[in-house]
């Protein structure tokens, strides 16, 4: 899994690529919390367009990011869900808890 963080004045984009599982989900969690701590703008977009697989530990990292964002009144958005991650979010009934956008560009524009 690779994580690329792009900070702008009003938002931060966390681009994730590769599978997210127990071996690397703590890194995703740390990245999301760091973005929030560093306080770049009022929006964090997690781009998952290059992610085909997320397990429950990855979902937990996203939930923790969402919780931290709510505390800080930051808009936390998921973008570009492929079938695998979408299916896991649907099974865990979290798909409606997150703000989900078809693409990174649409998440930033909305």
């Amino acid at each position: 899994m690779e994580i690329n963080i792009k900070n702008a004045d009003t938002n931060a984009v966390v681009e994730v690529s590769g599978d997210v599982d127990m071996s690397n989900s703590p890194r995703l969690r740390e990245a999301l919390l760091k973005v929030m701590r560093d306080g770049h703008g009022s929006m964090v977009v997690v781009s998952l367009e290059q992610v085909e697989y997320v397990d429950s530990s990855g979902i937990a990292s996203l939930v923790e990011g969402l919780q931290e964002a709510r505390k800080r009144k930051v808009s936390f958005r998921l973008a570009g869900l492929n079938d695998g991650p979408r299916h896991v979010l649907e099974l865990t009934r979290l798909i409606d808890v997150f703000d989900v956008y078809p693409s990174q560009a649409e998440a930033l524009q909305a």
């Binding site: 397990d55 429950s56 530990s57 979902i59 937990a60 939930v63 923790e64 969402l66 919780q67 896991v88 099974l91 865990t92 009934r93 979290l94 808890v97």
Partner: peptide, 19 residues
């Protein structure tokens, strides 16, 4: 337990049983 958005862990067994 049923899925709960505030819980950080414990979804694995639910997922296995679901699929």
């Amino acid at each position: 337990p049923p899925p709960d958005e505030m819980r950080l862990g414990g979804r694995g067994i639910f997922l296995i049983s679901s699929v």
